[in-house]
Amino acid sequence: MNTDFKATVEALIFASDSPLSVDKIARVLEVERTLVQAAVEELSVDCSHRGINLFKLAGGYQFMTSRRFYPMVLKMKDTDRSLSLSQAAFETLAIVSYRQPITSQEVAAMRGVQSVSNILRNLQALELIRIAGRKDVIGRPMLYRTSQKFLELFGLNSLGDLPSLEEIGVNDS
């Protein structure tokens, strides 16, 4: 592989604010996406032992510090990246992520409460969920889905990467 090409891809990924997709890189560089894919995979191997690793997130690639150096980086940054969500918020987010698209009423029913609209509003403010149309029933309630940012913040490449219940040892029939 042309080292300059690989370095270009590296530069693009580094300069992007959010995970950069192979398609986008291919469009920018006006090359075949298979070429980009190959470069990305090499880059990933190249930096696997470095302080920054290449992460596959939300359908793209992003450089982030290696998990191994978390304590030191944290000490330098002084603030944790993690969201402080209540248990109720995590439950609500879990319901939306596993059963999307879903209405507010359906989420509330699953949690056995009358309303989750406040929690949904907060999750929306955090850009973890978004409104994705309306359900075609009486009242046309809004449907919620998880966002790109949700995938990023939960280390998922796509919704298909959500840990399945079988994987955790629960029978989901």
Binding site: Q87, F90, E91, A94, I95, R111, F154, L165, I168
Partner: peptide, 8 residues
């Protein structure tokens, strides 16, 4: 849901 929330 509880299991999934924990996993998330």
């Amino acid at each position: 849901v509880l299991t999934q929330a924990g996993k998330l």
